[in-house]
Amino acid sequence: MAKTWLRSRWTALLIGLTAGAGVGLAVFQGSQLQGRGLYVLCGTTAGAVAAIVIHGYGRSVRLTEITVTIPQFSQVKFAVTNDNRVVAWRLFVETATRISQQPLDNDTGLVREAMNSLYSLFATVRQTIMDASPSMRTGDVPTVEHLAISMLNKEIRPFLSTWHPRLKAWEQEHPDGPESEWPGDVACRADLEAMRQRLGRYVTGFAELGGVANPEELIGPPPG
């Protein structure tokens, strides 16, 4: 083990010394050039730098298509780039660790806490999208932003718009009453669970777009 470590260290040192000597020689030779030779060297260097930059940019914007099955869309091919994968990964982490993926049974937890978590998730997802660079599109193929905004507008917003005013009104009328006495408690929890099942597809979609391997090991299988 120690011999292998020393051998690799010496190999790296020799490669570094050789590369350094080569660069030094190239710089010295370049400093001796004049006229046409100098222009050729400068042009070659500029071309090499441009090629590296273009290659790096091309990797960041290269589009790939991934098929995702989610509510409202059924099976759709989404276009993603390396940059969009980072956004999808962040959205996956946010959605997978919130109440949106944790069941709220009738005898546990509070609906108010679930709503506060959903409000926080809504704001975080929206800010994540706003902070990211807009995705490139190819025709009508949707991107990770379409998936995120669809989740907000077609799932979380309608739920909050329906139940938050009702719960808030009851809380104002019964400031000291336990939430379990709220007449809408059972129906709200049932609606919350149905939405949670649908949101599971979105979470899985973010995982697939973000390149997460075996997301079922983290969040369980997608809802049926």
Rank of each mutant, 00 (worst) to 15 (best):
K3M: 14
T4V: 15
L6M: 13
L6W: 05
S8G: 08
S8Y: 05
S8K: 10
L13H: 11
L14H: 09
A19I: 05
G20Q: 04
G20W: 02
A21I: 14
V23I: 11
G24N: 12
G24F: 03
G24Y: 02
G24L: 07
L25A: 14
L25Y: 09
L25F: 06
A26N: 11
A26D: 06
V27S: 13
Q29R: 10
S31H: 10
S31C: 13
L33Q: 14
Q34P: 01
R36L: 08
L38A: 11
L38D: 05
V40Q: 15
G43C: 15
T45Y: 06
A46G: 14
G47H: 10
A50I: 03
A50R: 12
I54E: 03
I54W: 04
I54V: 08
I54R: 02
G58S: 11
L63W: 05
L63K: 03
T64W: 05
T64R: 09
E65D: 07
V68M: 04
V68E: 00
V68L: 04
T69K: 15
P71G: 03
Q72P: 03
Q72F: 07
F73P: 01
F73E: 04
S74L: 09
S74R: 15
Q75G: 12
Q75H: 11
K77Y: 06
F78L: 13
A79K: 00
V80K: 00
D83Y: 06
N84M: 12
V86C: 07
W89F: 08
R90W: 07
R90Y: 10
R90Q: 13
L91T: 01
F92H: 13
V93Y: 09
E94I: 15
T95W: 07
A96C: 10
T97Y: 05
R98S: 12
I99H: 09
Q101K: 10
P103G: 09
P103H: 09
N106A: 11
N106F: 08
D107K: 14
T108V: 13
T108Y: 05
G109M: 12
L110W: 13
E113A: 14
M115C: 03
N116M: 12
N116W: 06
Y119Q: 15
Y119E: 14
S120P: 02
L121C: 08
F122V: 10
T124V: 11
V125I: 15
R126G: 02
M130Q: 05
S133R: 08
S133V: 10
S135H: 00
R137N: 01
R137K: 09
G139V: 03
D140Q: 05
D140E: 09
P142T: 05
T143P: 02
E145Y: 03
H146S: 09
H146Q: 08
L147G: 01
L152H: 07
P158M: 01
P158D: 01
F159E: 02
P165Y: 02
L167R: 01
W170L: 02
E171G: 06
P175S: 07
S180P: 04
E181Q: 14
E181D: 15
G184C: 00
D185S: 01
A187E: 03
C188V: 01
R189N: 03
E193S: 15
R196C: 00
R196F: 00
R198E: 03
Y202R: 00
F206G: 02
F206K: 05
E208S: 14
E208C: 12
G211C: 11
V212W: 05
A213R: 08
A213T: 11
A213W: 07
P215Q: 08
E216Y: 07
E216C: 04
E216F: 02
E217L: 08
L218T: 10
I219Y: 12
P221I: 07
P222A: 13
